[in-house]
């Protein structure tokens, strides 16, 4: 399903070109909009929500033109803003309920939904607490809750993990995955962290300084092996085991890269099919302790670093 189609989209602010003829299509699932701060992510979201008219080009969201049908579109999509400021004095449940109402849910229904959704995001016990007394992680959950409370077809979440510590970040990412998989709501998140996008997204759109770098399904863009890495641990009985492994592999005709003194051996891509067995036997024969044997896979960072800036 095509959720968003973007055609030659440009956005000019005075001298500054925030988006520069960008072209891509967003399909169902979780889509990651990646780029550094200032790459045009928030600008894109505001255009997709119909809050800004693009300078050139066209965009369709859920089959609607945001500039023309903004109000109608915004009853079908939701938004979680980047800034981590919320009405501090308001209890979470009132906040979620009010925004659900504004998005067209009848009052009584909004009340029960607000409470249900806060349970789903793990704030059930906390739902009557004023938002100001909540931790950063809880506030991010409140933002998620208000975005899904009105049962949208698509939500835009601007940097939903900003400012979170690793544990809280994981929890929020899991929730977002859940929103997509279990609740059937499509999600577009923006993030400047490649790692988290790789962790939860089905599709990605990478922007850099307003230009499109890459767009498509994550597993088609990444995952391709760029070589094998073998990490060994020196063993007292076989002090030279790492060198032995290195030599054995070289004798088998493989290119082996190793930094001086390093316990990591790298075999670049294009190695023969029997490679795993060669490595296994070399390690076994040398009596080395194997710590890790892993394919180095192409990731988003490689894609971005590949693009000449």
């Amino acid at each position: 399903m095509e959720l968003i189609t973007v055609n030659e989209l440009s956005m000019q602010f005075g001298q500054h070109r925030a988006l520069d003829s960008v072209d891509f299509t967003v399909h169902s699932g979780v889509t990651g909009l990646v780029g550094a701060n200032g790459a045009g992510k928030t600008t894109f979201m505001s255009i997709a929500l119909g809050l800004r008219a693009p300078t050139i080009g066209s965009i369709k969201v859920l089959g609607l033109e945001p500039v023309v049908d903004g109000a109608k579109l915004r009853s079908l999509v939701s938004y979680g803003p980047e800034r981590n400021i919320l009405p501090d004095e308001m209890p979470a449940v009132d906040f979620v309920k009010h925004l659900a109402e504004v998005r067209g849910i009848p009052r009584k229904e909004a009340k029960t939904r607000a409470s249900d959704i806060l349970w789903l995001v793990g704030l059930g016990e906390e739902r009557f607490r004023p938002i100001g007394t909540m931790s950063t992680g809880q506030r991010q959950r409140v933002k998620l809750a208000q975005a899904i409370a009105a049962d949208p077809q698509l939500v835009f979440l601007d940097e939903p993990t900003d400012g979170l510590d690793p544990l809280a970040r994981d929890e929020v990412l899991t929730l977002i995955r859940q929103i997509s998989e279990e609740y059937g709501i499509h999600v577009m998140i923006s993030s400047h962290l490649l790692e988290e996008v790789e962790q939860i997204c089905d599709n990605i759109v990478i922007l850099n300084a307003g230009k499109l770098v890459a767009a498509g399904q994550l597993d088609k863009l990444t995952g391709e092996s760029t070589g094998l890495e073998i990490e060994l641990v020196t063993v007292d009985e076989h002090p030279n085991s790492i060198e032995d492994v290195e030599r054995a592999l070289q004798q088998a005709g493989l290119i082996v890269q190793r930094e001086p003194e390093s316990a990591i051996l790298r075999i670049p891509e294009g190695a023969p099919e029997l490679l795993p067995d060669l490595v296994r036997d070399a390690v076994a024969d040398a009596g080395a302790r194997l710590k890790r044997l892993e394919h180095r896979r192409r990731n988003l960072e490689d894609i971005i670093l590949d693009v000449p800036s």
Binding site: L49, L51, G70, A71, K72, R74, S75, S78, Y79, P81, R83, L99, V102, R103, G104, Q146, F156
Partner: peptide, 9 residues
């Protein structure tokens, strides 16, 4: 900002 992301204009 949140209001502007709803059907309100």
């Amino acid at each position: 900002s949140l209001y502007m992301s709803t059907p309100l204009t």
